[in-house]
Computed example of a mutant assay.
Amino acid sequence: MKFSLFTLFMTAAAATLGGAAATPLAPRDVYVPPVLYPHAGTVWFVGQRHNVTWDNSNPPKQITNKIGRIMLRKGDLTTPVILADNFSILLGHIEVTVPWVEQGSDYQVVLFGDSGNFSPLFTISGSGQ
């Protein structure tokens, strides 16, 4: 009995999946705007506000995901720190506040939209005051 129920289920599943016509997708492009700031040599201090900036001069007509997110990366790992979220990737810049993190010269911002673009390495230091 188990075998016949299994066979019946698999036959029904195959008929359902096999008969479904694939809907063609509209052409879409992955938008990969390069991060312009922070750049190599930049030093941020905890608590400061900065405009993360990217080149939005040549977006494709069809962007897969226009909603942006900026996260902080240290070394080889993207941290769970979200610097900005839920903004249009077409803005070209967004203001962020430097979070309280360990000092280091191996930080990057990661701009997410269609893909993840890393800034060059930069430094975050303690309070600049």
Rank of each mutant, 00 (worst) to 15 (best):
residue 79 T to S: 10
residue 63 I to E: 08
residue 100 W to N: 15
residue 4 S to R: 14
residue 126 G to S: 14
residue 70 I to D: 03
residue 82 I to V: 09
residue 106 D to A: 01
residue 17 L to E: 07
residue 72 L to A: 04
residue 41 G to V: 02
residue 111 L to I: 03
residue 12 A to Y: 06
residue 117 N to P: 11
residue 15 A to Y: 07
residue 1 M to G: 15
residue 1 M to P: 08
residue 42 T to F: 11
residue 65 N to D: 13
residue 128 G to D: 02
residue 71 M to T: 07
residue 111 L to T: 05
residue 67 I to M: 04
residue 42 T to M: 06
residue 31 Y to L: 01
residue 71 M to E: 15
residue 29 D to M: 14
residue 5 L to P: 09
residue 23 T to N: 03
residue 66 K to M: 04
residue 102 E to K: 11
residue 102 E to L: 10
residue 37 Y to M: 13
residue 12 A to N: 00
residue 86 N to F: 15
residue 23 T to E: 00
residue 120 P to K: 15
residue 41 G to Y: 04
residue 90 L to V: 07
residue 54 W to I: 00
residue 129 Q to I: 14
residue 87 F to R: 04
residue 55 D to A: 07
residue 110 V to N: 02
residue 59 P to R: 01
residue 48 Q to E: 15
residue 32 V to S: 12
residue 35 V to R: 01
residue 124 I to L: 00
residue 26 A to Q: 12
residue 90 L to W: 09
residue 103 Q to H: 14
residue 37 Y to A: 05
residue 121 L to M: 12
residue 24 P to T: 08
residue 98 V to Y: 03
residue 10 M to H: 01
residue 126 G to I: 10
residue 104 G to V: 07
residue 40 A to M: 01
residue 67 I to N: 02
residue 9 F to E: 00
residue 89 I to Q: 11
residue 115 S to F: 11
residue 128 G to C: 00
residue 18 G to Q: 03
residue 6 F to Q: 14
residue 111 L to W: 01
residue 27 P to A: 14
residue 117 N to V: 14
residue 47 G to Q: 01
residue 98 V to N: 06
residue 21 A to T: 05
residue 14 A to E: 06
residue 69 R to G: 11
